[in-house]
Simulated assay, not measured.
Amino acid sequence: MTDRDIRPSGRTVGRWIGLGGLLGLVVAGVLFPVTGAKQSTDTSFALGVLLFGFGVATWGGAVGFGDSMSTVQNHLGGESEWSREGARQAFAVLTWIGAGWAGTAVVASILLVGI
């Protein structure tokens, strides 16, 4: 049995990257008066990359172990609404938000600190 193709459209991916970019700006903006330009953009970048890495790693786990998790839940009689497709989508969203966040932090660092 094959998975149904439920890849997001470019508009959907762009929306999640934009949301990540907004989060990156907010975090850097909140930290800027307290820590200065370099430290605020470095911290924002680190948080964005952390979210990106978590999304990639857990997305890979959902792809690799999704059938096993479904089988275990059916065997144990779990009443969870967890599905492989839902997990893949959720972790892909985290990945795109993290990518937007980290990218915005890089641009903010170049603009505020320089190369």
Rank of each mutant, 00 (worst) to 15 (best):
F52E: 13
P8L: 03
D67Y: 14
V13K: 15
Q89R: 14
L47G: 05
G29R: 13
V107Q: 09
Q39F: 12
T41C: 13
I97F: 05
T41R: 11
V93H: 06
G24F: 02
W59A: 10
A28K: 11
D3C: 03
E85H: 04
V106H: 03
V63S: 00
W96K: 07
G21I: 03
R7S: 15
T41S: 11
G86H: 05
A28P: 10
P8V: 05
V63I: 05
G24Y: 01
A37M: 06
V93S: 05
S80E: 14
L19P: 01
T35H: 14
A37E: 12
V113N: 04
I110E: 11
V63G: 00
V107Y: 15
R15H: 07
S80M: 12
T95D: 05
W16I: 00
G114N: 12
P33H: 11
G98A: 10
R88Y: 04
T43G: 10
A92H: 10
Q73L: 09
L112S: 04
A62P: 00
G48F: 03
P8W: 08
S9P: 08
G29E: 12
V93R: 13
L31E: 07
R15W: 07
N74H: 09
S83L: 00
R7N: 13
L112C: 05
I115Y: 12
V63F: 05
D42Y: 09
G98N: 11
A28V: 08
S9V: 11
A62W: 01
A62E: 01
W101G: 00
V49F: 07
W101K: 06
L51K: 12
W16D: 06
L50T: 14
Q89C: 05
M69R: 02
G21T: 10
L31R: 07
V93N: 06
A87F: 01
I110C: 07
R88T: 07
G61I: 07
G20Q: 03
R88V: 13
G100H: 02
F54L: 15
T104A: 12
E79N: 15
I6Q: 14
F65Q: 03
T58M: 09
G20F: 03
V13N: 12
V93L: 06
D67P: 06
S83V: 01
G18I: 01
L94K: 09
W96L: 11
A92I: 03
V113Y: 00
N74F: 08
S40G: 15
A57D: 05
T58Q: 09
F65H: 03
W16A: 04
H75K: 03
I17C: 07
V26R: 06
V93M: 13
V72Y: 07
L50W: 08
V107D: 10
G53H: 09
V93Y: 00
G53W: 09
L51M: 15
V26M: 11
S109C: 06
I17V: 15
Q39Y: 08
G24W: 00
D5Y: 14
Q89P: 01
